Amino acid sequence: MSLAKGLFVTFEGGEGAGKSTQLRLLADSLRSLGHEVLTTREPGGSVGAEAVRHVLLSGAAEAFGVRMEAILFAAARSDHVEEVIRPALSRGTIVLCDRFMDSSRVYQGITGNLEPAFVETLERVAINGVVPDRTVIFDLPATIGLDRAQRRAGDDSPDRFEKEELETHEKRREAFLDIAKADPNRCRIVDATQSAEAIAAEILGLLENLLANAEMSEPTSTGSAP
């Protein structure tokens, strides 16, 4: 079942918060209700963006500085939006995305120490009007998240961001909470220390009104601002 208007939901938070698991569980629940669902991720999600993902997470761009990384993230996001997200929303699909613009605000803006005007300009160009209808922010102490991420990775080396200092990860946690407080219409905070089942039920409940509204709305060619 396609909605009259697509619905764009993003999952945000620190490392090991459980975003990927919950995105999969939500997609399964929505499909069981008859909805058309697309799951995607950032960096990545489109052919061009997936190529950039490898460069970013491998650390190959780190030597060129956080400004260059931010530009690469924006380029990947622009391709993702125009090639995947916007077309899906125009078809009335529910798009679930693991990370989006708030991750750039936090990782490159807050802990990357980039000036706000630069980050805001990159964001505006990259998203080109496609704003999430709902952003779920997974709140978890950095120590727990990093431990989960390390156990998940096993013998694999931590990626470009997982390897950073605990203090940096905790600063990101606070930054995500600040974003949620500043934009309460779009963002909802979920306690990620709960069981997977409890979190999944809470997230589904956070979408009930949005789903009802989307079913009644007129079709649109872009994502909608909250």
Rank of each mutant, 00 (worst) to 15 (best):
P43Y: 03
V119I: 15
A88E: 07
D155I: 05
A74E: 09
D139W: 05
R31W: 05
P116W: 10
L26A: 08
A63N: 09
M68P: 02
A192C: 00
G13E: 02
A61S: 15
F138N: 00
E120F: 00
S58V: 10
I179V: 14
A63H: 10
N113F: 12
D102N: 12
L56G: 07
L211W: 13
I110V: 14
V119Q: 05
L3T: 08
V81E: 01
A196I: 15
E69M: 08
A149F: 09
L56T: 11
E208Q: 15
K163W: 02
V47L: 12
V84A: 10
P116C: 14
E167H: 13
A61M: 11
A17T: 15
A51M: 11
F161Y: 11
E170A: 08
G6P: 02
L96S: 05
I71A: 15
E36P: 00
E120A: 14
A49G: 13
R99W: 13
M1T: 12
H169S: 06
I85T: 06
N113W: 03
G48S: 03
N185V: 07
H35Q: 03
L166F: 14
I94E: 08
G223H: 05
L96C: 11
S103A: 14
S78E: 07
A196C: 04
V66E: 13
R31S: 14
R160D: 09
H35A: 03
T143R: 12
G223I: 02
A61P: 11
E215G: 04
G44V: 08
L7M: 07
E12Q: 01
R53T: 04
T193F: 02
Y107I: 15
N185A: 12
E42G: 09
V95A: 09
D155Q: 12
R77G: 05
E83R: 15
L211N: 11
T21M: 07
G14A: 06
N213G: 07
T21P: 05
G16Y: 04
